[in-house]
Amino acid sequence: MAVSNNITAALNFVALLCSVPIIGAGIWLASKPDNECVRLIRWPLIILGVLILLVSLAGFVGAFWRLQCLLALHLLCMLILILLLLFFTIFAFVVTSPNGAVSVPGRQYQEFRLSGFSGWLRNYVTNSGNWAQIRTCLSSSDVCPSLAREYSSPDQFFASSDISPLQSGCCKPPTMCGYNYVNPTLWVNPINPAADTDCYLWSNDQSQLCYNCNSCKAGLLGNMRKEWRKANVVLIVTLVVLIWVYMIACSAFRNAQTEALFRRYKQGYV
């Protein structure tokens, strides 16, 4: 029984360590300007990671001090948290599966179309109430000013593949409009202003730019998709480890219970 409890304690320590990349992924997403404005996924991920940490700590304490009731409660709570993490991982994968990116002739960066993204995610972001807050947040961020500081010539700008989807959609007009480049956030004299409604929405006012454009909403979704996909890799690996740890912990707990019953039976028989 002592061996089973020691194994359970060690496994809970591993589960406790697994909470670190989950919390880290949430903090990493929270540091990104798009997720800072949307705030859809970062807090649930951080909270879930903290809960796994606390439950793992409770399981470690229960195993170390041989508190079987606490261990049983820990296993139940951990099962619920693993199922929540599984749901969260599948949900994030499904809503980020469609990709609205389109290639632009003569440009290394991509542009984005709203129609190419998940309907649920698109509706959440483009909802008038949500987008008003998101737009205000984006316009006060350093997303576009940093782009203007980084690129000094059109050749450098057009040849760059490091421009984020958010910058591509919000900081410049769509290429199809035919605006002439002055700097990354200043464009004049459109050749084909009727090509898209966004062509009329572009403004050289640095507080406006293309924050009212559909291309900006699509760029935000493109950024979210890119970052969520990276975070999902961490979540999938962590989830696999947690499931493996949980199955072994259940087996160790069952063995400990069997040993305890056998010992009580043997004592009663003697």
Rank of each mutant, 00 (worst) to 15 (best):
A195E: 04
H74W: 05
S168D: 06
C137P: 06
T238W: 00
L51Q: 10
C137I: 06
F93A: 15
T197D: 15
V38N: 06
F88A: 14
A72E: 13
C216R: 03
R263T: 09
G129F: 12
T96Q: 03
L81I: 02
E36C: 09
L261V: 10
W131I: 10
S128M: 05
G59Q: 00
T175G: 00
A218G: 03
L40K: 11
N35H: 13
Y211C: 06
D198P: 03
R229M: 13
Y265A: 14
V241F: 00
C250E: 05
G106T: 01
L221R: 00
A9W: 06
L45T: 09
Q208V: 12
Q156I: 02
F13H: 00
A218R: 05
P154Q: 04
V125M: 04
D196F: 09
L48H: 07
L75S: 11
S140G: 09
S31R: 06
F262R: 13
F87T: 15
A132L: 12
L138Y: 07
I23Q: 01
D142W: 14
P173S: 07
F64Y: 12
S215W: 05
S168R: 07
I27E: 11
S161I: 02
V104Y: 04
P173M: 04
L147Y: 03
S128K: 09
S56R: 01
S4R: 02
I52F: 08
I7C: 05
G106D: 01
D142H: 15
L16Y: 00
D198T: 07
G106C: 02
R263Q: 11
R254M: 07
Y200P: 13
L186E: 11
L201K: 14
T126L: 02
W43A: 14
A148K: 09
S118G: 07
S203E: 06
C250H: 06
A252V: 05
A10P: 01
K230F: 14
V95H: 09
C18G: 02
Y269P: 06
V14W: 03
G169P: 00
I82L: 10
L53S: 10
T197Y: 11
I23V: 13
C69H: 12
M247T: 04
Q257R: 14
A260D: 10
F262Q: 15
S203W: 04
K230G: 12
V125H: 00
L239M: 03
V61N: 12
Y151W: 05
A256H: 10
V3I: 13
Y269F: 14
T136N: 13
G169Y: 03
S4A: 12
L76A: 05
L57W: 06
V94F: 11
A72S: 15
P154Y: 08
L239P: 01
L79N: 11
L53R: 02
C199N: 06
C171R: 06
I41Q: 11
L48D: 07
L138Q: 08
S97N: 13
P105I: 00
R39K: 15
S19K: 03
P184K: 01
L85A: 08
S139E: 08
Y179F: 14
K217W: 08
L17Q: 04
K230D: 15
